[in-house]
Design a protein around this nucleic acid. Structure first.
Lengths: 341, 341
DNA sequence: TTGTACGCGTTATCAG
DNA sequence: CTGATAACGCGTACAA
């Protein structure tokens, strides 16, 4: 069923049908209704592919997510959900590409095949091949996260450096002197994952500024790893009284390890960090954290992308959010462990 | 950059370039290499939209998910991840449509606009408008789940009726006489959500068969609701010694409510149910459940869809899985509570 | 209102 | 067997 068929059955030219539908030229009410009747009868819908070819745009955006093999964190899921939702509100479709750091076929189809009008990229590394590829392609794109050359691109990001600093200020104010930072996985850090590096930088800076003793460890993104990671921390650093973390997925395991060690939270030990609001609220106990508004960030990225598609020459925009810490009761005054100060 | 440009720079006709790329006609090695050199130099990629228009297929499948506003369960996420992954392996792209029960614009674009070669539908209701619409459209589709007229469509599904029966057999064998079924949300049940209805049917049947006392409750899909739901169950049904559930998301809350009531699992109280394998393993304590292989089901749905696209006239296929219960230590012999038998 | 060229890759057909 | 020409898929928009 195509526009030619509708035109024939209505006894008009194809272009008349097109104009009747789009309203870009006036069409007499009588023919308009006749055409509409035929359309309703046959259930005709314009072929989106033909329209895309003619118009030179697909009304579709690409969303590049980490490969499905690795399980997404709650924050990542929040991004995906809000991007999809915001796109739907703008009548845009979303093409999903599960692409790792390297060029893979799905990503190449998106970019090279001009299947989308723009791309949203997640999980950005400080040096990111996909960003390079997209820039060279000329396709509008927006990152959730940023590389080490952030001026040359549009992005929304979380100010991990500031957030972790806020966490340490909070802990230091409560009298904690020895604190650990539980980062994301060693692989991510090795791959130059931006948030991990900026968090570590902020952590190191604050240790000096507040004269704290600190240890930095990586931890895979799952509860099991959280258990073993914290168990090891407690064993090797008896003076430790608090943990700051950006590793959402490991937190349930961290809680378990503390409970298992006989440490009450927050009576004996404090935990604070950065997490998606939804996740922080639903942990047990609810987690004192800088609440990342994942929903807003995804929607914001979509808005920025829509604007970039409309005006690719416009100056890049940057949104850096640093939400305050929401106290939910996993931090308290320092209490020395094991007779160590 | 289009195929004509490549042809001109290579000094050949457009069709020669096309044949050189597709190999559907022999092209002399010399010209092939010359063409390839130009392509490499300019980074040319065929326009996927033009190709789709000509070929009449988009190499894209649609995946209809619940609206993003509602948070997806771990099992649903498993389906999405495995569908995306399997599609990528088959060099298919995935267009995501967050569509509720009713016809919404995103879904209508997918189906009416012929943007996809086929559709995978999740969260099927016993009567489902989307299935009706898809059938009328003639677009190949596969459901994860099934309606009340399952013969007329292709689907993969979980045999909830059998699984919940297995759970009750297990509990009955352990001596439990009074058990509760914690179903999904009341809204889903009211909407005719298949798994909820089939689970309830299996539950009711088994109560009679094993001569058990049972109570059926609905519970929203989140931990908080799990807490209040179980707290109320314990208060109103003092003889209760076990719960069976298909509500993954509520399980952490159910654990909490039991702990809060001073009931040890499995010493004082048993919990069993149906859950995605990954979720069951990562709960604390790990959850005795029929492990739904979400990854395999998604991949299976993609395989079936690919076959349906290749041969739309082929007979419908149906895959019904009933995985065995994996014992992980949340069930044990019944122990009466509160002096009630 | 209508006729028609256009966007771009594919492929049948024809010429060499 | 190789290369060139032209039609096709379908909606859009300009010229008439």
């Amino acid at each position: 069923m195509n526009i030619g068929e509708i035109a024939r059955r209505s006894g008009v030219a194809r272009s008349t049908v097109s104009y009747a539908l789009s309203g870009k030229r006036p069409v007499s009410e009588a023919t308009r209704q006749r055409i509409q009747a035929v359309i309703d009868e046959l259930g005709y819908r314009p072929n989106a592919v033909a329209r895309a070819l003619k118009e030179g745009r697909t009304r579709t955006i690409g969303l590049v997510i980490p490969p499905a093999s690795r399980r997404l964190t709650d924050m990542q899921l929040g991004f995906v959900a809000s991007v999809v939702d915001a796109a739907a509100r703008a009548d845009l479709d979303v093409l999903l590409s599960p692409s790792g750091g390297e060029h893979d076929r799905s990503f190449e189809r998106l970019v090279g095949g001009r299947r989308v009008d723009g791309v949203i990229l997640m999980e950005i590394r400080l040096e990111d091949d996909r960003v390079t590829r997209l820039r060279q392609s000329g396709l509008p794109f927006v990152c959730i996260g940023r590389t080490d050359r952030p001026d040359e691109m549009s992005w929304v990001d979380i100010d991990y450096e500031t957030l972790i600093a806020n966490c340490l200020h909070h802990l230091a104010d409560l009298g904690h002197r020895r604190v650990a930072l539980v980062n994301r996985s060693a692989e991510l850090v090795a791959a130059g994952y931006g948030p991990s590096h900026r968090t570590r930088a902020g952590f190191t800076r604050m240790l000096a500024e507040r004269n704290l003793d600190g240890v930095h460890v990586c931890c895979a993104d799952d509860a099991q790893s959280g258990v073993s990671c914290v168990a090891q921390l407690l064993a090797e650093h008896p003076g430790l009284t608090a943990i700051a973390t950006i590793n959402e997925a490991a937190i349930p395991g961290m809680y378990r390890a503390l409970t298992h060690a006989g440490l009450a939270v927050p009576g004996d030990f404090s935990v604070v960090g950065v997490a998606a609001r939804h996740w922080a609220e639903n942990l047990h106990p609810p987690f004192t954290a800088a609440d990342v508004p994942a929903d807003e960030l995804g929607a914001c990225a979509v808005d920025m992308l829509i604007q970039r598609i409309a005006d690719p020459e416009a100056a890049h925009r940057h949104v850096l959010v640093a939400p305050p810490i929401s106290l939910r009761g996993t931090t308290g005054p320092a209490r020395p462990r094991d007779g160590l100060a």
